[in-house]
């Protein structure tokens, strides 16, 4: 018996410092501790099969992260969720275990909440708003193949922006997925206020398809 499953989880607090590479080891051990029989790749060095739809950058929190795995026993998905949650470290929590409804290629957008701590939130907010309203933002993007120019206009939407005494708060929707992927830090690092920011907290709050449905 084999069943492809998709595991939706939250990664918050201390757990945001677990790198993507460390996450795969962490999940393998979590399945082992939960005593769940999972499918292992065959070959020289068998490992637990896992595919992440959209790896999260180190230091980011995420509320709707997901990965695929393969169960090799008939266990109700709610029970899978319960058993995993009992043995997960603080900061990792499973919200849902389900069948794989969509293909990861359908992911086109992701929403992010950014909290930018700074000395003068009012002025930072003003400058940032001006920056994000420009008709064209061309940035250098480093990829495996080298550095290339990238036009960010059209690849992001500002959903909300505000500020309080300590911080600027920003909600952004960014192009995401196999073909185009814009990291919120890319936008921020190229903004005129980057040097003024003391600390950036980033949280991914939604992963969406082209017609803005949640990835399932």
């Amino acid at each position: 018996m084999q069943r492809n499953i998709r595991i939706f989880f939250e990664k918050t607090g201390r757990a945001k410092y677990i790198s993507h590479l460390d996450m795969t080891r962490c999940w393998t051990r979590t399945f082992n501790r939960a005593g769940l029989p999972m499918w292992y790749t065959e070959g020289f060095n068998p490992h637990l099969y896992m595919t992440f739809a959209l790896p999260l950058s180190l230091g980011f929190e995420g509320l709707c992260e997901s990965f695929d795995a393969r169960l090799i026993a008939d266990i109700p998905l709610d029970e899978v969720k319960e058993r995993l949650n009992q043995v997960l470290p603080t900061g990792l929590q499973i919200s849902r275990v389900a069948d794989q409804k969509m293909n990861a290629r359908e992911i086109k957008w992701a929403d992010y909440e950014l909290c930018l701590e700074c000395e003068n939130p009012k002025s930072v907010h003003e400058k940032l708003t001006e920056f994000l309203n420009r008709d064209s933002i061309v940035v250098e993007k480093r990829t495996k193949k080298g550095v290339k120019d990238m036009e960010l206009n059209g690849l992001y939407t500002v959903l909300e922006s505000s500020f309080d005494e300590t911080s600027v708060l920003l909600k952004l929707r960014l192009a995401t997925g196999v073909e185009t992927n814009v990291n919120p830090m890319l936008l921020l690092e190229n903004s005129p206020v980057y040097a003024e920011i003391l600390q950036t907290s980033v949280r991914r709050t939604a992963v969406l398809t082209a017609d803005l449905n949640n990835f399932e």
Binding site: G13, R14, A15, Y17, I18, S19, D22, R29, T30, R33, L58, G59, V87, L88, P89, T90, G91, L198, Q199
Partner: peptide, 17 residues
């Protein structure tokens, strides 16, 4: 505020199972 400035911050945060 400083954890993302250093290599492998996971070494400094504890919280492991």
């Amino acid at each position: 505020r400083n954890l993302l400035k250093v290599q492998k911050p996971g070494r400094y945060i504890g919280g492991e199972p």
